[in-house]
Amino acid sequence: MKVGLFVTCLVDMMRPAVGFSTIELLSQAGCEVVVPDNQTCCGQPGFNSGDRESGRTLAKRFIELFDHCDYVVAPSGSCTGMIRFHYQDLFPEDPALQERIHLLAQRTFELTDFLVNILKVDRVESGFKGSVTYHDSCSGLRELNIKEQPRKLLNSIETLTLKEMDQAELCCGFGGTFSVKLGDIATRMSDNKCHYAQQSGAEVIAGGDLGCLLNIEGRLRRRGDNTTQVKHIAEILTVKAK
């Protein structure tokens, strides 16, 4: 099974370790992982800001790079949602391309969803020790129905304690350009998310979208919390045993 890894912009630029952890998880599950080295953005920032032309350019590039793969996996619900549900909106008058997009969208998955529902992974060997609370990102939860998949994987780690926060499904306030356009509202939403996460008593806040995690971590530090760790779930699932 040839699986194309779509790294995503934030992982590539801000935390490439998430990409390497994703490759490790997929390889351990028996996949042949390919990573096109000239991949770029999925086009979501432009699409959300009304720049459909740049969105179309990037979408076409993505299709050309990944169309040959059996599956495409991204460590991000947000980017996956863009590909699966919004690419077709960019090409309303191109039936041939619409069909290619439709077929590719059916083969494109967020990481934990792919591991649990396609590869049927029900246990991971991770040396992580400690307590974790999980943040449900908006795109993953509301577009892709990702809720139980990451928790199933986390709960398979015997030395990990999952501590659910209140309002786990509450938006963290990032929303890409939302946090730029409506900064005061976004900050209040981030404060609420940090409050609930800290109340859980967990040592680590985990999630499946790096945009959310960077936003939460940034707000935690500005609130004076330099102790709580913030990690992508792929990083937790691949901790080496000591």
Rank of each mutant, 00 (worst) to 15 (best):
T57N: 07
I83C: 03
F85I: 12
F91L: 08
C69Y: 01
T57L: 14
I118H: 14
I63F: 02
L103Q: 08
R61N: 11
Q88C: 14
R123Y: 08
D67S: 12
Q106A: 15
A59P: 07
V73K: 05
L58H: 13
L90N: 03
V73Q: 03
V121M: 10
T80F: 02
L65Q: 14
P92C: 15
L104I: 06
A105C: 12
C69Q: 01
A105Q: 09
I101F: 07
D89C: 07
L58C: 11
D122C: 05
G77H: 05
H102I: 06
K120A: 11
I83R: 00
R100F: 07
F128D: 01
E110P: 00
K120E: 14
F62I: 09
E110H: 03
L65W: 07
E64I: 09
A59N: 13
V116L: 15
L97T: 02
G127C: 15
C79Y: 03
S78K: 06
L115G: 06
G81V: 09
G127K: 07
S76R: 13
T57E: 13
L104T: 04
E99M: 02
L115Y: 07
M82V: 02
L97G: 02
L90C: 03
V121L: 11
S78V: 07
K120G: 14
F109S: 01
I101G: 05
P92I: 15
Y87V: 10
H102T: 12
P95E: 14
K60Y: 04
P75A: 13
D67V: 08
L103A: 04
F128I: 02
Y87I: 06
Q106N: 07
E99Q: 10
H102Y: 13
D94G: 05
I118N: 13
I83T: 08
Q88A: 15
V73L: 12
E64L: 05
F66I: 13
I83L: 04
E125P: 04
T80C: 09
S76T: 15
A74E: 05
T112I: 15
M82W: 04
L65V: 13
K60C: 10
P95H: 12
D94M: 06
S78C: 13
N117M: 12
A96R: 00
Y71H: 01
F114V: 10
F91M: 04
V124C: 11
F109K: 00
F85Y: 12
E64Y: 06
E110Q: 05
C69P: 00
F109P: 00
L97A: 02
R84V: 15
D94R: 01
Y87P: 07
V121R: 09
S126K: 08
L104F: 00
Q88P: 08
D67C: 02
A59D: 08
L115V: 11
T57R: 09
S126C: 11
Y87K: 06
L103E: 13
V73E: 10
D94C: 08
C69K: 00
D89E: 15
H68I: 11
V124E: 04
D113C: 14
G77P: 02
D70H: 05
D122L: 02
E93L: 04
R123P: 00
E64G: 10
F114C: 06
L111K: 12
F91V: 10
P75E: 13
V72R: 01
E64Q: 11
K120T: 15
T80E: 03
A74K: 04
R84P: 07
L58E: 06
